[in-house]
Amino acid sequence: MSAALAQLFDQGRLWRGHVPRTTRTQPTGHAALDAVLPGGGWPCGALSEVVHAAPGSGELRLVLPLLARLTQAHRPVALIAPPLRPYAPGWAQAGVNLSQVVVLETPNAQAVDSACQLLQAGAAAVCLWVRRLNEIDTRRLTLAAETAQAFALWMRSTSAHGAPSTAALRVAVNGHHADVLKVRGGRPQAGCAMGV
C-alpha cells in the first residue's frame, strides 16, 4: 500500500468495509449517549444534526458540554442565527469561556456561507440554526468541518424528522432525553438520558 493511501486510512478519510471505521470524537458530556455512539461522542470533522421541537427544548443542554470543553481549551466556537439570545450567566455556569464565543445574527441565505467561513478561519465548532438546508449546503458544511477537523452542529426543527439527511450523526432531543436517529457506523437508539 502506498504511503499516501495509508495516510488517508489513518486520517479516517477512507475505510475498508470489513474493518470498523475509526472516527475522532469528543464526548457529548452525557454518559448514556456516549455509550451508544461509535467512538463515544460527537464525530469530529463532520456535520451533526440536533433535532428539537422548539428552541429551548433541550438542544443546548445537549451541546453545552462540548462547547464548554472547547472554549476552556481557548478554541473559539460560533453560534449562527440562534433564535433566542444566549443567556451569558447560564453559559458561564455551564463552564463556557464566553470570551471564545461568537454570536452571529445573519439571514438564512448567508448562514451557510458564514458557517463555512468561520470553520475555515479556525472555529472549533459552529452551531447553526436554519430551517432548511439543501443537499449542496449540507455537503459544503460537511466539507468545511472535515477540512477544519471541527464540529458543524445543525440545530434542526422536529418538523424535518422524516426528511433525508447526509449528517454523520442525527440526534433528537426532548427535555432530558435524546434519541439517536442516525449514526454513521452505529445503530439508532432511543431514550438516552441527558444529565441535568
Rank of each mutant, 00 (worst) to 15 (best):
S114G: 11
F151H: 02
R131Q: 15
R131A: 14
F9G: 08
T142Q: 14
H52I: 06
Q120L: 15
Q11I: 05
N134W: 13
I136G: 06
D137A: 09
G90N: 04
A125T: 01
A94C: 09
E49I: 02
A144R: 00
G56L: 06
L79H: 11
I136E: 15
C116S: 01
S99H: 14
P89S: 11
V103M: 01
Q26R: 13
S48T: 13
L153K: 07
V103K: 02
A94V: 09
E49P: 03
C127P: 03
A6R: 08
L153V: 10
G40Q: 04
A124T: 05
A54N: 10
G90R: 00
T22D: 13
G12M: 00
D113E: 15
T25L: 07
V51C: 11
W129S: 05
R61G: 14
T106P: 04
F151K: 04
V50K: 03
V50W: 00
A144N: 00
H74D: 15
L37V: 09
L66N: 05
A92C: 08
R140C: 11
H74Y: 09
G45V: 01
G45L: 00
R61C: 10
A68M: 03
G45E: 04
V130T: 14
V102G: 02
D137G: 05
A94P: 07
V63R: 10
A88E: 07
E105R: 11
T147K: 13
V77Q: 06
R24H: 08
L84F: 12
Q7Y: 07
E49D: 00
A150P: 03
R85Q: 13
G122V: 08
P65L: 09
L128M: 06
D137M: 05
L153E: 08
R16L: 15
P20K: 02
C44Q: 12
Q7T: 14
G95E: 05
A123N: 12
V101W: 05
A123I: 12
Q149N: 13
A109D: 14
C44W: 00
R131K: 13
H74T: 06
T147R: 14
R21L: 12
A78T: 06
G58N: 14
Q120K: 11
W129M: 01
A81I: 00
Q149C: 11
Q72V: 04
A144T: 04
Q110V: 01
A115E: 07
Q110R: 15
Q117D: 12
A111M: 09
T25Y: 02
V96T: 05
D10F: 07
A124C: 10
A94N: 06
F9M: 12
A32M: 12
L66D: 04
A68R: 03
A6E: 14
L141Q: 03
A68H: 06
H74C: 05
L79E: 10
A124Q: 03
C127G: 05
G12H: 04
S114F: 08
R69T: 12
I136V: 15
R21I: 01
R132S: 15
R61M: 10
V96C: 09
A121D: 12
R140I: 14
R75D: 05
A32F: 08
L118D: 04
G41Q: 04
Y87M: 00
S48A: 15
A109G: 13
P38M: 11
A68L: 02
S99Q: 15
H52R: 06
H18N: 11
A81Y: 08
P86V: 11
R85E: 13
